[in-house]
Design a protein around this nucleic acid. Sequence first.
DNA 1: GCCGTTTTCGGCCCGACTGTTTTCAGTCG
Length: 577
Amino acid sequence: MDNKQIANIFRKIAEILELQGAIIFRIRAYERAADTIERLGAELKVMAEQDTLTTLSGIGKDLSDKIKEIVETGSLKYYGDLKKEVPEGLLQMLKISGLGPKTVKLINDNLKINTIEGLEKAAREGELRKIEGIREKTEENILRGIDLFKKREERTLFYKASDISDKFIEQLKKMKEIDKIESAGSLRRKKWTVKDIDILVTSKQPEKVIDTFVKLSLVSEVLAKGSTKSSVIAKDSNLQVDLRVLEASKFGSALMHFTGSKAFNVKLRQLAIKKGYKVSEYGLFSVSPDKKEELIAGQTEDEIFSRMELVYIPPELREDRGEIEAAQSNKLPELINIQDIRGDLHVHSTYSDGKDTIEIIAQEAKRLGYRYIGISDHSQSLRVANGMSIENIFKKIEEIKKLNKSIKGIEILCGTEVDILPDGTIDYPDSVLKELDFCIAAVHSGFKQTKEKLTKRIVSACKNKYINIIAHPTGVLWGVREECEIDFDEVLKAALENDTALEINCHPMRGDLNSLNILKARRAGVKIAIGSDAHIISELKFMDLGVNLSRRGWLEKNDIINCMEVSKLEKWLQKKQ
DNA sequence: GCCGTTTTCGGCCCGACTGTTTTCAGTCG
């Protein structure tokens, strides 16, 4: 069992305890432990053997023993017993928006309903309203929740959500009653996927703003409408959009609160209490011994951070991954910006499955301000992507030589995205690889191999002296394929020892590495390449998404090979040989 | 279930909206 699986067991336990009406703090203890485990760099297995689990925050004797039991036996008796007490369907019912543990339990106790289908039937037939505490309105809400549940994608990709958010903001900006407007939430933290959109505005006429908001043509359904807050569903997306109207004096504290993350907020509030303060969306308050509160900051985030004796923490870092501690000692990283990117090394041309010629790509890269562009077409075995024959590689090398003479102001590098075959060998012989400026290697088949085999494949590619970059290391494809199981620590070790960079693949479907793995790579000292994986020049802009992800993974300029100037990069690429 | 610079018990982050009540509980973020 790896850390993620153990964390999942704790989350499931928390859900079941919630249904059973356990005290909230016990439930939170399991959730907090799951959080800690998930963001942990080290293997729990090793810590269990060394008996150091209780040094982790939120893990005491009981949970330490439970982890040890899982590590040693592969299962947890307590969890097995607990599962028997609660039908799986009840856990499913919890996923319906508006339906929490208390109501699920109430319905189950009264009508013995334990599936979503059963719930829907009872709601349609008006059975639920016979239960004390449930009336028509609740019944309607449950039906609406079920409807949403059925058609909802769990999360929406950032680049789609940010598009929708921009449209709402554009419409709202037309209102003269609105002063400031900004999106918050995971969108502001630039998470790869988001659950909903939070928009904050300041206005002296909140009711009027809310009235206009719910009537926007972008809205398909109004979920809630109060005097300062409203929730709607955006048209054609099933994405929930929340709007909150605030006083200008509290905009900073509200922005901070609704940007989150939840874990960050909790940590910040605990820190506030230690300093004799209280922080909420309405501001930072000093609290006197007789519990009198006085507002001391709230208009801007800067002001609040400063009163808390923290340097400003960029939203992308607010995940409780050590950023608050780093801000206390002024050791936050200097995050990269899109302007720091000097070139893109992962681009496909008409030599494989790209839509544009090398010349067109080079011209567009130049227009974007890049200093170099690496053309990395697929290798021969990837037939579905029109992988290049060896003969074509030599044609491509010649073409790039000519183009480099005719196009000034940008350097075209000739590369490949070569397959790491299921037996761990590379799809072209060394005699071919050595003719190229750089080589990216990637797994494109045999994803279902064991963790050991997959890890070995990637490690052996790292060791190849012509391979500079491992592309999309975990193979995740959003909504299509989960991350493959690889021993990431082993991969990091091999990458570090052999001067191989790991890629952040910017394609919206990938986002691979994820931010936690990026952070691990940075802490291990492994270099990163950010590649757009563009198959048409309009996709070169995906670089933005990779920069977002890099910032979430704490990356600085020096961590990233395509922030190097071309001469330095060329030296780095040849370093292995 | 965890945790401790008033510490081994009694706290544990904070507030809006909704529905069902008649002062509040449940849910959500």
